[in-house]
Measured scan of single mutants.
Amino acid sequence: TFELKGKVGKVVKIAEDHYLVESEGDKWIAYSDEKLSLGDRVMVVDVDGLKLKVKRIP
């Protein structure tokens, strides 16, 4: 299986209740415990079905 946990991506869209993150050339629906901005670099900390939980990284 394709393992996304630990992968790095970038926030490419902000929606009302989720983010769109591009990682490894694909776009994924993501959510975070912190507020993210367009262009933020993020790391995948968990995968919930087809949704990614991400956190901001420097």
Score class of each variant (00 low, 15 high):
residue 16 E to V: 06
residue 17 D to C: 13
residue 44 V to R: 01
residue 41 R to I: 11
residue 16 E to C: 12
residue 29 I to Y: 14
residue 23 S to T: 14
residue 40 D to S: 07
residue 55 K to E: 14
residue 37 S to F: 11
residue 43 M to Y: 04
residue 29 I to C: 13
residue 19 Y to W: 08
residue 47 V to M: 07
residue 55 K to T: 14
residue 18 H to Y: 07
residue 28 W to D: 01
residue 52 L to P: 07
residue 56 R to K: 12
residue 48 D to S: 05
residue 49 G to A: 06
residue 54 V to Q: 00
residue 39 G to C: 13
residue 11 V to Y: 00
residue 52 L to Y: 02
residue 4 L to Q: 15
residue 31 Y to M: 14
residue 45 V to P: 01
residue 26 D to G: 09
residue 50 L to C: 13
residue 18 H to L: 13
residue 13 K to N: 08
residue 11 V to H: 00
residue 16 E to I: 12
residue 36 L to V: 05
residue 1 T to R: 15
residue 18 H to N: 07
residue 46 D to Y: 03
residue 54 V to M: 02
residue 17 D to M: 10
residue 34 E to W: 04
residue 6 G to A: 01
residue 43 M to S: 06
residue 34 E to C: 11
residue 29 I to D: 10
residue 47 V to R: 02
residue 47 V to P: 02
residue 40 D to F: 04
residue 30 A to P: 00
residue 18 H to Q: 09
residue 58 P to R: 04
residue 9 G to Y: 01
residue 10 K to H: 11
residue 17 D to R: 09
residue 28 W to K: 01
residue 4 L to Y: 04
residue 6 G to T: 01
residue 3 E to P: 15
residue 57 I to E: 14
residue 40 D to P: 00
residue 56 R to C: 12
residue 4 L to F: 03
residue 16 E to P: 11
residue 12 V to Y: 05
residue 30 A to S: 14
residue 16 E to Y: 12
residue 56 R to M: 11
residue 14 I to T: 11
residue 16 E to Q: 10
residue 10 K to S: 10
residue 53 K to S: 10
residue 5 K to E: 15
residue 50 L to K: 06
residue 17 D to G: 08
residue 18 H to V: 13
residue 41 R to K: 05
residue 32 S to E: 01
residue 33 D to T: 10
residue 17 D to I: 11
residue 49 G to E: 08
residue 14 I to D: 10
residue 14 I to Y: 09
residue 7 K to Y: 04
residue 12 V to P: 00
residue 58 P to L: 05
residue 3 E to M: 01
residue 44 V to H: 01
residue 7 K to G: 04
residue 9 G to L: 12
residue 7 K to C: 14
residue 48 D to T: 08
residue 27 K to C: 14
residue 56 R to H: 09
residue 31 Y to H: 10
residue 11 V to K: 00
residue 31 Y to A: 13
residue 29 I to T: 09
residue 10 K to V: 08
residue 35 K to W: 09
residue 33 D to W: 10
residue 42 V to M: 02
residue 21 V to K: 01
residue 33 D to K: 09
residue 52 L to C: 05
residue 7 K to A: 14
residue 54 V to C: 05
residue 40 D to N: 08
residue 37 S to A: 13
residue 22 E to A: 05
residue 57 I to Y: 12
residue 51 K to L: 13
residue 44 V to Y: 03
residue 30 A to D: 00
residue 35 K to A: 10
residue 32 S to T: 07
residue 9 G to Q: 02
residue 45 V to N: 04
residue 11 V to A: 02
residue 56 R to Y: 13
residue 46 D to W: 04
residue 46 D to N: 03
residue 49 G to V: 08
residue 40 D to C: 11
residue 1 T to Q: 15
residue 15 A to W: 12
residue 51 K to A: 14
residue 40 D to R: 02
residue 52 L to I: 10
residue 19 Y to A: 07
residue 33 D to R: 08
residue 45 V to S: 04
residue 14 I to R: 07
residue 39 G to W: 12
residue 3 E to A: 01
residue 58 P to V: 05
residue 45 V to M: 12
residue 35 K to D: 09
residue 38 L to I: 09
residue 33 D to N: 08
residue 52 L to W: 02
residue 12 V to N: 05
residue 27 K to V: 11
residue 8 V to E: 14
residue 57 I to G: 04
residue 2 F to D: 15
residue 31 Y to W: 12
residue 21 V to A: 05
residue 38 L to Y: 07
residue 55 K to F: 05
residue 45 V to Y: 06
residue 31 Y to L: 13
residue 25 G to I: 03
residue 13 K to C: 13
residue 11 V to Q: 00
residue 18 H to T: 07
residue 44 V to P: 01
residue 46 D to M: 03
residue 15 A to V: 10
residue 34 E to N: 06
residue 32 S to G: 12
residue 11 V to R: 00
residue 2 F to W: 02
residue 27 K to R: 07
residue 21 V to G: 01
residue 4 L to K: 14
residue 38 L to M: 08
residue 19 Y to G: 01
residue 48 D to I: 13
residue 48 D to P: 02
residue 23 S to E: 04
residue 36 L to Y: 06
residue 19 Y to S: 09
residue 3 E to Y: 02
residue 40 D to V: 09
residue 53 K to H: 14
residue 36 L to I: 06
residue 10 K to F: 08
residue 23 S to F: 14
residue 43 M to F: 08
residue 32 S to C: 12
residue 10 K to Y: 11
residue 56 R to P: 12
residue 50 L to F: 12
residue 14 I to W: 10
residue 14 I to Q: 06
residue 7 K to P: 01
residue 8 V to G: 03
residue 30 A to E: 00
residue 47 V to E: 04
residue 11 V to L: 06
residue 20 L to W: 07
residue 42 V to S: 01
residue 15 A to K: 09
residue 30 A to C: 14
residue 41 R to E: 14
residue 19 Y to N: 03
residue 30 A to H: 00
residue 18 H to E: 12
residue 53 K to T: 12
residue 34 E to D: 11
residue 47 V to K: 02
residue 47 V to L: 14
residue 25 G to N: 05
residue 26 D to M: 13
residue 51 K to E: 12
residue 28 W to G: 02
residue 11 V to P: 00
residue 37 S to L: 11
residue 55 K to V: 14
residue 49 G to H: 11
residue 16 E to H: 09
residue 35 K to E: 10
residue 58 P to G: 05
residue 15 A to Y: 07
residue 18 H to C: 13
residue 1 T to A: 15
residue 38 L to K: 06
residue 52 L to G: 02
residue 44 V to A: 03
residue 13 K to Y: 10
residue 13 K to F: 07
residue 6 G to K: 00
residue 11 V to W: 01
residue 42 V to Y: 01
residue 22 E to S: 06
residue 37 S to C: 12
residue 32 S to K: 13
residue 30 A to W: 01
residue 52 L to F: 02
residue 22 E to Y: 11
residue 51 K to Y: 12
residue 44 V to T: 02
residue 34 E to K: 05
residue 12 V to R: 06
residue 46 D to G: 03
residue 32 S to D: 05
residue 6 G to P: 00
residue 7 K to E: 08
residue 27 K to T: 13
residue 33 D to C: 13
residue 29 I to W: 13
residue 13 K to E: 11
residue 49 G to W: 07
residue 24 E to T: 04
residue 56 R to A: 10
residue 40 D to I: 06
residue 40 D to Q: 08
residue 17 D to W: 07
residue 1 T to V: 14
residue 42 V to T: 04
residue 33 D to H: 08
residue 48 D to H: 06
residue 33 D to L: 08
residue 26 D to V: 07
residue 1 T to F: 15
residue 26 D to T: 08
residue 21 V to L: 06
residue 2 F to S: 15
residue 24 E to R: 01
residue 53 K to G: 11
residue 20 L to C: 12
residue 33 D to F: 08
residue 19 Y to I: 08
residue 40 D to M: 10
residue 56 R to V: 07
residue 8 V to M: 06
residue 24 E to I: 03
residue 5 K to A: 15
residue 42 V to I: 13
residue 53 K to W: 08
residue 25 G to W: 03
residue 21 V to Q: 01
residue 17 D to Q: 10
residue 45 V to G: 03
residue 38 L to P: 08
residue 4 L to R: 02
residue 40 D to H: 07
residue 19 Y to M: 13
residue 17 D to V: 08
residue 12 V to F: 06
residue 19 Y to L: 09
residue 54 V to W: 03
residue 26 D to K: 08
residue 48 D to N: 06
residue 22 E to C: 07
residue 27 K to M: 11
residue 53 K to N: 09
residue 20 L to K: 06
residue 26 D to E: 09
residue 55 K to N: 13
residue 7 K to T: 13
residue 55 K to Q: 14
residue 21 V to Y: 06
residue 17 D to P: 13
residue 9 G to I: 02
residue 34 E to Y: 05
residue 55 K to W: 05
residue 42 V to W: 01
residue 35 K to G: 07
residue 51 K to M: 12
residue 51 K to I: 14
residue 39 G to D: 13
residue 24 E to L: 04
residue 11 V to E: 00
residue 16 E to T: 09
residue 6 G to E: 03
residue 10 K to N: 08
residue 24 E to G: 03
residue 2 F to V: 15
residue 5 K to Y: 15
residue 12 V to I: 11
residue 38 L to T: 07
residue 10 K to T: 09
residue 20 L to A: 08
residue 26 D to Q: 14
residue 28 W to C: 03
residue 2 F to M: 15
residue 45 V to T: 10
residue 43 M to W: 04
residue 10 K to R: 11
residue 22 E to T: 07
residue 4 L to E: 15
residue 53 K to P: 00
residue 55 K to L: 12
residue 15 A to G: 11
residue 27 K to A: 06
residue 41 R to A: 14
residue 21 V to C: 06
residue 41 R to G: 13
residue 5 K to M: 15
residue 49 G to N: 10
residue 36 L to N: 01
residue 39 G to Q: 12
residue 34 E to V: 05
residue 3 E to W: 02
residue 17 D to S: 10
residue 51 K to Q: 10
residue 45 V to E: 14
residue 12 V to A: 07
residue 55 K to G: 05
residue 1 T to N: 15
residue 36 L to E: 00
residue 4 L to G: 15
residue 48 D to C: 14
residue 32 S to L: 02
residue 31 Y to I: 13
residue 50 L to V: 08
residue 2 F to Q: 15
residue 41 R to Q: 12
residue 1 T to M: 15
residue 22 E to G: 04
residue 20 L to G: 06
residue 39 G to S: 09
residue 45 V to R: 02
residue 7 K to S: 14
residue 3 E to G: 01
residue 44 V to E: 02
residue 18 H to F: 10
residue 37 S to E: 10
residue 34 E to S: 07
residue 24 E to D: 05
residue 42 V to E: 00
residue 53 K to Q: 13
residue 29 I to E: 13
